[in-house]
Design a protein around this nucleic acid. Structure first.
Lengths: 205, 205
DNA sequence: CATAAAAGAACGAATGTTCGCTCTTGTCAA
DNA sequence: TTGACAAGAGCGAACATTCGTTCTTTTATG
């Protein structure tokens, strides 16, 4: 029987994950040593290796957290019906990304996951799964917009959803490396979607 | 005096760079050891270290190549005037990305550069410089489109250019991790830009 | 022959991980 | 209520290995 409560075990595990996320976001998966993570978490190797069998497992856990965080946030967004048009939707998503990145370095870690997924079949599958989730939510939203006559109907909703997701990923890059903010993307996208004919919402500056 | 021709020196350097690119694209910057690069290039450490003083310098050189390759291709694209509309422009860019990735793993390496730029000020500055170039070409194109009345005029061209670049980056992610192709993005973007009113070019499927 | 390019053994440092020990904790008999 | 016991959480020194890099030697060339 365990000499400590299972809540304490969970807390210790979470403490390790938090330290790992901090270090990985700061220095990347590979340039971060176990010793860095351990000292950030104020743990010894022997203690930590009771919770994660390897550094790779720690990386995988952080990747799961990151991908899940994003897709869960997008799911919530697509369920509360607060995005009356495609530009509002992307705006809502980018501001959500901003919030998650400020809280948990989500955008930085997501980019690291892209890089690592190229060589790790495990991470590649995790990414593909999370992407499929997001794609589903986005596609449903696009179908709604198509039903309302807001978007061209003859193109498969999935294709349009893919483009919107691409936009979000591009935002993550610019947010991380160039300090781009939501307003910039919102105005640009609105102008693009609005075309020359219809009056867009006024830009913010 | 040098015992070999300077052409031979340049060839040897290029051989090293090619090997490094192959290895870095296959396994990432950090997971690739010098020994892998050296054996791919069929060189000894002593030989190779005459051309690059460190692994970091090799990484920086590959990053420069990758970023320059992309921005040079985009510059060529924006100069030959072959993109009559914003959707054509993005389509031309994505197919260029496909070609460069097939030839030199450019998209894969670009993503690695994003990840590495988060912790390396040197790469971050390289990226920012290359991005500024691309942004300039894109902005000029958008201004042209605005002049022709193809895009809403009241939004700064730079903002719209940023969104289009984001789209390209998103395409790189999907191309690398999900085997997305240009046609998918082309149709999706056309539908988005066309809106419900104007007839878009017919989708490809 | 002189020069330097190339080779490859060798180096110290740092990595992820292990293992034997100590200490804390929950349990239960008295 | 209390004391001792068993179990496992936590520790940290030590491990084998691999890393990037150097240095001496050999080879090839103008």
């Amino acid at each position: 029987m365990s000499p400590v409560s299972s809540a304490h075990l969970a807390a210790r595990r979470a403490q390790l994950l938090k330290a790992a996320r901090t270090c990985f976001a700061r220095n990347g998966f590979h340039a971060t040593s176990m010793q860095e993570v351990l000292s950030e978490a104020r743990m010894s190797p022997g203690g930590a290796y009771r919770y994660f069998p390897s550094k790779e497992a720690l990386v995988a856990a952080i990747a799961t957290e990151t991908l899940t965080e994003v897709s869960a946030a997008l799911k919530a967004l697509s369920e509360d019906g607060s995005t009356p048009g495609p530009d509002d939707m992307v705006t809502a998503v980018t501001s959500t990304v901003e919030r998650l990145d400020a809280l948990h370095d989500t955008a930085k870690l997501e980019i690291q996951v892209w890089a690592e997924a190229q060589r790790s079949p495990l991470l590649a599958e995790q990414f593909a799964r999370a992407f499929a989730d997001v794609e589903r939510f986005m596609t449903e939203q696009v179908e709604t917009y198509q039903g309302r006559g807001l978007i061209e109907r003859d193109v498969p909703a999935g294709h349009i959803a893919r483009v919107l997701i691409g936009l979000v990923h591009g935002f993550m890059v610019q947010r991380t490396l160039l300090q781009a903010d939501t307003a910039l993307f919102r105005d640009g996208l609105r102008a693009l979607v609005a075309g020359p004919g219809r009056a867009p919402a006024p830009p913010s500056e």
